[in-house]
Design a protein around this nucleic acid. Structure first.
Lengths: 213, 213
DNA sequence: TTCGAAAAACTAACCGTTAGTGCTACGGTC
DNA sequence: GACCGTAGCACTAACGGTTAGTTTTTCGAA
C-alpha cells in the first residue's frame, strides 16, 4: 500500500522505453510488417509477455508518445482564457498538433503510419475515442448535464479537421478552410441551443456562458 | 473470357451465402468472439481457405450485405434531380440508410456490432473509405478536376452524421440537427468557392452548376 | 534477514490468416 | 459427344499477434 518510491518504478519505465525505442527503430529500418513481435522482444532483450504487459498491441508501440492527445484537447477547452470562444481555442490546439506531426523530426513516423494499413486503422479508432472525449469536455464546458448530439458532432468535426489537415498538401490552408466550416456549423447549433433552452435544470452558474458562441 | 452463365456462378453464390448465413447465426447465438473461423467453416461445411476466398476477413462476414453503401451515396449525388441542391439529397439518402440500420429486423446485427470492438473498428475503417469515395463523387459533381479539401470535409461530415445518428436516442432528430450544421458549413465553403474561381481550367460546362449551393 | 508482492521469464498454446498443392466439376470448343 | 482449360474448393502446414498459466527474479518494507 506504500508508494513504491524509486528503483522499481525507474526500472519499469526504462524497460518500457527500451521496448518502444527498439520497436520504432526496427519498424523504421525494415518496415512495420517485416518486423515481428518476437523480433522486437528479442532485440529489446525481454520476453514477449513482458512486451505485452507494457503495450496492449503491436500498433500501440508506434503511438507510444501520443497518449496525451485527449488531455491536450480537453485542456484546450477547459483551460482557455475566460470569454475566449470555443472554436478558435480548439483551432489553435489542432494547429499545434498538426504542426507537431508534420514537423521534420516526426515525419518518418507518420510516413510509416500512412504506409501501413494496420496503423491507419488503429489511429482511426483512436480518433473516435478522442472525439468522444472531446465531446464530453465540450458538453461539460457548456454546463450541459450530458453529451448532446451537437457537442458530439462538433467534436467529430474538429477531429476530422486534424485528420484532413494532416493529409493535405498545405495543412495550414486546409485548417483555415475547415475551421471556417466548423465555425459556421457551430454558430447554427449554438444559437438554436439558446432557443431550445437547454440550460441545465439546476439553474444558472454551472459551466461557461452559453452565449459565448 | 466468356460470361460464365449458369451453374458455376449459382454454386459459388450459394456457397458464399451459406457461409454468411451460418456465420451470422453463430455470431448472434454465441457472440462474435466466442465463435472461431474454424467453427464457422465447419458448420457451413467448407474449408477454412474457401471461407477466406469469399470473405477477406472475419469481420467482413458480418458486413456482407452492406457492400452497396458507397454506390448508394455516389448515386445520391450524381443521380439526383436536376437543380436539386446537394446537401438535402445526401440527407435523404443518409436518412434512408439510418432507418435501414435501426429497423427491427436489422437491430440484432447492429447490437452485435456495437458490442464488439473489433467490428466497430472495422466499420470505422469502412466509413473512412466511404467518405473518401463520397468526396470524390462530390468533387466530380462540381466539375472539379480533383478532390479538394472542402469536398473531402463535407463528405466526412456527412458520414459522421450517419454514424452519430445511428447511435443517437432519436435518430431523426439527430439528423435534423446535424444536417443543419452541415448545411451551414457547406454554404460557407461553396460561396467562397465562387470567389476563389475554382472552376476547372477547361471552362464552363463540366459538371453541375457551382451556384446550385 | 525475511516476507509479500510486483515484474519479468518461460512454455505452450489459441486464433485469424496465408501459401502451397492437388483434385474435381463445370463451361466452352472442336 | 469427347476434350481441355480453369474456377472453385479441400487439405496441410505454417506464420504472426496475443494470452493463460506458472515459475523465477527483484525490490521494498518490516
Amino acid at each position: 500500500m506504500t508508494v513504491p518510491s524509486g528503483r522499481r518504478e525507474r526500472k519499469k519505465a526504462a524497460t518500457r522505453q527500451k521496448i518502444a525505442d527498439t520497436a520504432l527503430r526496427l519498424f523504421l529500418d525494415r518496415g512495420y510488417d517485416a518486423v515481428g513481435i518476437r523480433d522486437v522482444a528479442a532485440e529489446a532483450d525481454v520476453a514477449v509477455t513482458t512486451l505485452f504487459s507494457h503495450f496492449a498491441s503491436k500498433e500501440a508501440l508506434v503511438f507510444e508518445q501520443d497518449e496525451d492527445f485527449e488531455q491536450r484537447l480537453a485542456q484546450a477547452v477547459t483551460g482557455r482564457a475566460p470569454h475566449e470562444p470555443l472554436i478558435p481555442a480548439l483551432r489553435r490546439e489542432i494547429e499545434a498538433l498538426v504542426r507537431h506531426c508534420t514537423a521534420d523530426s516526426a515525419a518518418p513516423i507518420w510516413r510509416l503510419v500512412e504506409e501501413t494499413p494496420a496503423l491507419r486503422e488503429y489511429e482511426e479508432s483512436m480518433r473516435l475515442r478522442h472525439a468522444e472525449a472531446l465531446g464530453m469536455a465540450i458538453a461539460a464546458d457548456l454546463g450541459l448535464p450530458r453529451t448532446t448530439t451537437d457537442c458530439r458532432t462538433i467534436a467529430r468535426f474538429v477531429i476530422d479537421a486534424y485528420s484532413l489537415a494532416r493529409e493535405a498538401a498545405d495543412p495550414e490552408a486546409a485548417l483555415d478552410e475547415i475551421f471556417r466550416m466548423i465555425e459556421a456549423a457551430w454558430e447554427v447549433t449554438s444559437s438554436s441551443r439558446c432557443t431550445r433552452g437547454a440550460v441545465p435544470p439546476d439553474g444558472a452558474e454551472a459551466g461557461r456562458a452559453v452565449t459565448a458562441r
